[in-house]
Amino acid sequence: MGVWQVPSDLLARSRFTVSPMVDTVAALRALYKPRTPWQWAWRGPHVDAFQRMLAARPVARALLPASFNPRWVADFFTIAPASPEPTFPAELAAVGRLSDEQVRADLRVTRPESLAPELLADGLTGQVVELLNWVWTHTVEPEWPERERRLRADIVARTTALSAGGWAGVIADLNRNMRWLGDGRLQINDYSEPPLSLDEAEQLVFVPAHCRRGWVVWDAPTRFGMVYPARGILMDPASPAPDGLARLIGANRASILARLDAPLSTSQLVVVTGLSLGTVSDHLRVLLDAGAVSKRRSGREVLYWRTPLGAALAAGG
């Protein structure tokens, strides 16, 4: 599955979308095997409850090592969103419609060796549904407003880049192994598989998520998509700016400065801070005049980021 052959009309209809299920799977992977400092930090408050849940559910405990390996995720965790604005209940229902044997077949692809005895009993699909529902309810749903803001801010930036540089530029920035090869060929990973034709596909989506690396979502032969790491996931919008910095320059101005470790547009800052466009613009003007941020134009947007002075203020706040 290293290269997809994408018809031009399918690419023209492709879109970015936010998927609660994709972020739930990303959270499950971080709970199971965190790989980065920010995943370890996010996992901390949830890990005890997660371990207790697994101790009480031997099937769920056996599912995790069988479902994830470094090169593949079991397909029942990677069903492509069926609508432009999917909800978690609708996406969970799609998983629930799978048969136990379909789930086991997906597990045998991910782990070709024999499955654990716990995974051979009836009710396996129900156990998958319960596991996903637990992760959503206990870890993702309470954070969903802020998570969704980050994801939609990423989409704002990507669609701006799309209008300026086309799909080739956008795709190259989504994932280190993705690139547009020309002639309708989209490289999605570095696997040595024969090209896959998407001639029958009706949908191609790109889904930002709180993840370290992306993965494929699909419901062949009609729906395909790529998950990619969203920008700004290291910054938690729910966390206040350092108290000292807030006292020095004001809470809202400090909140904006704290988020500008990477370039963000005005519209992105509106999404991740919850402030109005006018308020964000006023604060950016003050920070520019003070030498705490710099700016440059990128397509139709203006991007802002911290100067060394701004970085020193944010670090020492």
Results as ranks from 00 to 15, higher is better:
94 A>D: 11
9 D>I: 05
21 M>I: 05
197 S>A: 15
154 D>K: 01
141 E>Y: 01
263 P>G: 09
52 R>L: 13
125 T>L: 11
297 R>V: 13
242 P>T: 01
144 W>N: 03
34 P>V: 09
270 V>R: 05
279 T>A: 15
208 P>H: 06
200 E>S: 13
24 T>Y: 10
131 L>H: 01
62 A>G: 07
175 N>M: 08
121 A>I: 04
176 R>A: 14
216 V>N: 04
3 V>K: 03
273 T>C: 07
84 P>S: 06
277 L>C: 03
84 P>A: 08
15 R>H: 12
280 V>L: 06
292 A>C: 14
305 W>A: 04
211 C>P: 08
65 P>R: 12
41 A>M: 06
112 P>N: 04
35 R>I: 05
203 Q>S: 15
130 E>F: 07
173 D>W: 01
40 W>L: 14
156 V>A: 12
174 L>T: 07
89 P>V: 01
104 R>E: 06
257 L>G: 03
298 S>M: 12
226 M>T: 03
296 R>P: 10
126 G>I: 02
18 V>W: 01
308 P>M: 07
199 D>V: 03
143 E>V: 07
260 L>N: 01
83 S>G: 07
142 P>C: 09
40 W>E: 15
290 A>P: 01
70 P>S: 11
121 A>K: 09
1 M>E: 10
244 G>Y: 00
273 T>N: 09
22 V>K: 01
264 L>E: 00
238 A>K: 03
138 H>D: 15
303 L>D: 05
237 P>L: 03
115 L>I: 04
79 I>Q: 12
132 L>M: 04
111 R>K: 15
233 I>G: 03
223 R>W: 06
143 E>R: 14
279 T>P: 02
98 L>A: 09
85 E>Q: 11
114 S>G: 12
60 A>D: 14
99 S>D: 11
218 W>Y: 10
35 R>P: 00
99 S>E: 09
